[in-house]
Simulated scan of single mutants.
Amino acid sequence: MNTYKIGVIRVLTTEDPELLNLHGRLLEQYYPMFQTVSRCIPDQWEGIHDDATMAAGVPKVVAMARQMYEEGFDAIIVSCAGDPGVAQARAEVPIPVIGGGESTATLARFYGGKVGTLGITADIPEAYPRILGDALIPEAGIGEGVRSALDLMTPAGREATMAAARHQQELGAQVLALSCTGMATIGIAPFIRDELGIPVLDPVLCEGAVTLFELLRRAQQPAPAQN
């Protein structure tokens, strides 16, 4: 089995190695052919959750992606459903750069029906309406009092998120596309699935699936002709 060196960019600054490496460990669990190295961008202690933190974070993601490419990584995952810096990094490096939001929205289309979201912002990340169109429930799913990934890690934040998931189903959601990778950090997807009885897409699982697909797709392309 081929193995791939995957750079995982975390957009929540942390000095906790367990938290830093959590998404990488999940990716290696889901995809045993991945060998991950996780790094967080600097000075984003509340992650990326609004226009100001997005503007500050994008150039940091691009710089880190460029460094990972220079170090010989096979692909880069920006583990954030807002996909900060993904498009810009793709213009900078020739290896796959995969974002959590694009991946989750794309795979949500597989199930058909109405798709609800569940995240940490009152605005749904850009990739979801762009990819899902009319299939997307336009009201963002967000737990009361939840404003950053840190809030998800509290009992109150978790319960508020469960309540928001139930409300998305009341609005007609037949699929839930989680719109914050912090949902993977707290491992909430299977609990929502078991309570609501509908598919719940974990962004970390989705970003890994799209990364593997793109690596395999590129491996099948013919080598450039030699002069």
Rank of each mutant, 00 (worst) to 15 (best):
T117R: 06
I95R: 12
G197N: 09
A89Q: 09
L215M: 04
Y128C: 02
A219E: 11
A52T: 13
E170R: 12
R39E: 14
M54S: 06
P125A: 02
R10F: 06
P155I: 00
I124E: 00
E18T: 10
V78C: 06
Q221T: 08
K60P: 11
A89E: 03
A223Q: 14
I131W: 01
V93A: 07
L19M: 10
T3D: 13
G82L: 09
G172F: 07
L215S: 08
R66S: 12
T104N: 13
L26H: 08
G99S: 02
V62D: 01
I131Y: 02
A91Y: 02
G208P: 00
L12I: 14
P138H: 07
G157R: 04
H167R: 15
E70R: 09
P17H: 10
Q169S: 09
T14F: 06
A160E: 15
A65K: 05
L205W: 12
P125I: 08
A209W: 02
E207Q: 15
V97F: 10
E15R: 14
F110V: 13
A135W: 04
C180V: 05
E71G: 03
T154K: 10
Y4K: 05
L215C: 07
V61R: 08
D134R: 14
L178C: 12
Q35D: 04
I98Y: 09
F191L: 13
L152Q: 06
V175C: 09
G208H: 02
I131L: 13
D74C: 04
A173R: 02
V11W: 12
L152C: 03
D16N: 15
G7S: 08
N21M: 13
